[in-house]
Amino acid sequence: MASKTMDGAREALAGVLFDGMTIMAGGFGLCGIPENLIAAIREAGVKDLTVISNNCGIDDFGLGILLAGGQIRKMISSYVGENRLFAELYLSGKLELEFNPQGTLAERIRAGGAGIPAFFTKTGVGTLVAEGKEVREFDGELYVMERALTADLSIVKAYRGDHEGNLVYRRTARNFNPMMATAGKVTVAEVEELVVTGRLDKDNIHTPGIYVDRLFKGPVFEKRIEQTTTRPREESTQEKVGA
């Protein structure tokens, strides 16, 4: 069996990128985004992309660099408020947008990975979200039908991975990554630490290697924060006593 471990993002994406493809990208804001893979896609220059992600990064980082490069045709997202260019392109009609309630987006991706073509949810009934979709009554309540989402390529970011592709995510950086890893025809992961197979605690593997086709150890992770809000540090009791 061919090795899943690659030398870097460019090698990991070799032969899987093409114009007009659909890409799922893990992350929530800038937390847990596959930043090295996004940069490699920018470098490859593929265009006319449909991107499924909670949001589209910021103007100069994350998926925002694909937007700035004119590579994204359509976004399927939940939140886009941190990207000024996104708003400009959408309002000018240069970018297609399919908005989803966040839980609905997550469930559409999970359903795609599980082979479930559609499901019914109460979220969005009677709103713009339900326009053009089937609405059905169950036990006296109305539900809107949502279709599952899959992609040609899923790019995800994990904390640790082994050579078989088993992945472990760290805290909130898990977010959309596990479900997206199951819903791509090809799944490529970048990890902070690459360990020998068998070292990961088997009871705490979040994504089994069967879902991962290729992975590599990222050379650098900026881990930017969209907005940093701080307040003055409160003086501790010990500091007061020693004063």
Rank of each mutant, 00 (worst) to 15 (best):
E137K: 09
V129R: 08
K157Q: 15
I116T: 11
L215G: 01
L194C: 10
E96R: 10
A243E: 14
I58Q: 01
G140L: 10
E82K: 07
S236P: 03
R174N: 07
T121G: 05
H163R: 11
P232S: 13
R10M: 07
D19F: 13
K202H: 07
Y211T: 01
K185V: 07
V135F: 04
T237N: 13
T5S: 13
K157E: 14
I116N: 11
S92Y: 08
D162L: 06
I210W: 06
L13D: 00
S236T: 15
L63W: 02
L95Q: 00
G8Q: 11
L13V: 01
E239W: 08
E96F: 03
L167Q: 06
T207F: 04
R233L: 12
R231L: 14
A148S: 15
L85W: 07
A9Q: 01
F86T: 01
F99W: 04
S92W: 06
N83C: 15
E193L: 06
K4A: 06
D48V: 04
T237S: 14
E239L: 09
A12M: 03
I41F: 04
P208K: 09
T150H: 07
N166W: 03
S78V: 02
F28M: 12
T5N: 08
F119Y: 15
R160S: 08
D48A: 14
G103Q: 09
L153S: 01
A87M: 12
Y211G: 00
I38D: 00
